[in-house]
Design a binder for these strands. Sequence first.
DNA 1: TAGAACCGTTGACATTTGTCAACGGTTTTT
DNA 2: AAAAACCGTTGACAAATGTCAACGGTTCTA
Lengths: 193, 193
Amino acid sequence: MHKNLLTYINQYSNLPLTSEEEALIEATFQPKKLRKKQYFLQEGDVCKHVGFIVKGAMRQYSVDDKGVEHIVHLYIENYWAGDRESSIMLTPSKYNIDAWEDTEMLIITRAEMMDLMEKIPALVKMIRLMDERNAIANQRRLSSTISNTAEKRYEEFAENHPQFIQRFPQHIIASFLGITKETLSRIRKQAMK
Amino acid sequence: MHKNLLTYINQYSNLPLTSEEEALIEATFQPKKLRKKQYFLQEGDVCKHVGFIVKGAMRQYSVDDKGVEHIVHLYIENYWAGDRESSIMLTPSKYNIDAWEDTEMLIITRAEMMDLMEKIPALVKMIRLMDERNAIANQRRLSSTISNTAEKRYEEFAENHPQFIQRFPQHIIASFLGITKETLSRIRKQAMK
DNA sequence: TAGAACCGTTGACATTTGTCAACGGTTTTT
DNA sequence: AAAAACCGTTGACAAATGTCAACGGTTCTA
């Protein structure tokens, strides 16, 4: 079960993990299984864990006054799920995170992660790299959201993230793009010609 | 001139800088002055420096097919300007960064920064904290862009960033929010009642 | 296996936002 | 001092997107 995680870390850091380090990681990350629709985080709770997804699919979203869900993140295998703001500031989260498919995760608290980072240099390297890529991805998404029409945004997304198009239904993708399912349906119809 | 930077670092790291460290920082960060409208980075160039703004105001934007500018970042004193993606990946930037007011910066290359970080622990701490806050801010902005109407987005922005409202004209703020200057003008007119 | 929930689509219409052109007042430049 | 550039506003209209209701087909579930 932890194998995917170890592989993931090794890919990121190019300093191969020693077997002691591997053992430490396996001892610290706790397996957690979620059935479809189960919550990993609920609005109002403080986000105590971040989770590495070994198998499955999840989504993170807020719910507005009218009860409409606004999806801010989609996750599949090899993604990390969690609300960083809540987890760092120890404030109640504005988001929900739940399983879209049955999901297996490996979870860890912030304190445990800090501790591991002191003992395992490869982890520090991985975190920094992840942060960088994350920052770049966020910048791109923001830029696209501000500058492009809904149509172009969908095209770009479908091009760059075909895995998500396959795993999640259209109304979820629409919400993730910040448009309604009807609009997305019409955009796709147009584009088909 | 470097004083603001040293203060800034000390605020972030709570490990006070030694005078050797301060000297090293002063020797590495190069002063750079920009007159209003001068470029710090031009689309197509690789972003070689990141700059700490000691005094002034800047903006980062892309230009679309029709020649319309889309502003993705605004900077004032104590902000860092640069295109992280270009700088890390060494790819040509999609953005321009220029001075909106006459500006004084302290600039440093990525390699120099890496080097400093090995010698000055406080810097590592600062960078990690900055990254965290940055990630949180980006998340919030993204969430707001996806979930809120233009009107609410403007309200939130005006509430949380009054300094920017004062420093930049309305059409710049509008572009930053992803709407046209006419729409912003009308939103403000409405809100006045 | 029957009912419920889910999903994508469509039509009719409302709302939001963009586009284009023009204006007057300011500030900057020459 | 004159000209140019900049800035915010407004009106008329166009385009994009949202809202609501309904439908048929699928998948899930009791």
